[in-house]
């Protein structure tokens, strides 16, 4: 099955998914994603890893995100236009998240929940 799909000859007419990988690679990616998710959950439960929890989890999440985006969503094979269309908003979204977190962490200092 994977031989068949890895050979793009049959998909000749469509430029947009002519280079798409086949089930073999998809299964490989799925295995990697499963392992990474298992790692995430393990990290969560191991008490000794708590101090480095955030960086590890963030890295793992970014790697999973990138794998799905690149292979399942074919960004790695498709036109770079699509990557641009997706990555630019992603960066902007990150900017918004970090901006708001910074702004509100300042606010935390001047808050009073006790209404006088």
């Amino acid at each position: 099955m994977s031989d068949h799909a890895l050979n793009p000859a049959h998909a000749g007419h469509d430029v947009s998914h002519e280079d798409h990988p086949g089930p073999g690679l998809y299964l490989l990616i799925a295995a990697i994603l499963t392992v990474l998710t298992a790692a995430e959950i393990t990290v969560f439960y191991v008490p000794g890893l708590q101090p480095v929890l955030v960086p590890i989890l963030l890295v793992l999440a970014i790697v999973k995100f990138a794998f799905v985006g690149m292979f399942y969503m074919h960004l790695y094979y498709d036109s770079k236009v699509f990557t641009t269309l997706f990555v630019f908003p992603l960066l902007l979204a990150l900017l918004i998240v970090f901006g708001l977190l910074l702004l509100f962490s300042h606010l935390q200092g001047v808050l009073s929940f006790v209404v006088p």
Binding site: F86, L92, A93, L100, F104
Partner: peptide
Amino acid sequence: LGSECVFFASLISTYMV
């Protein structure tokens, strides 16, 4: 989907804040 990124970013930052 790019537009959706900003949608979820707004929701996620609200949760975190």
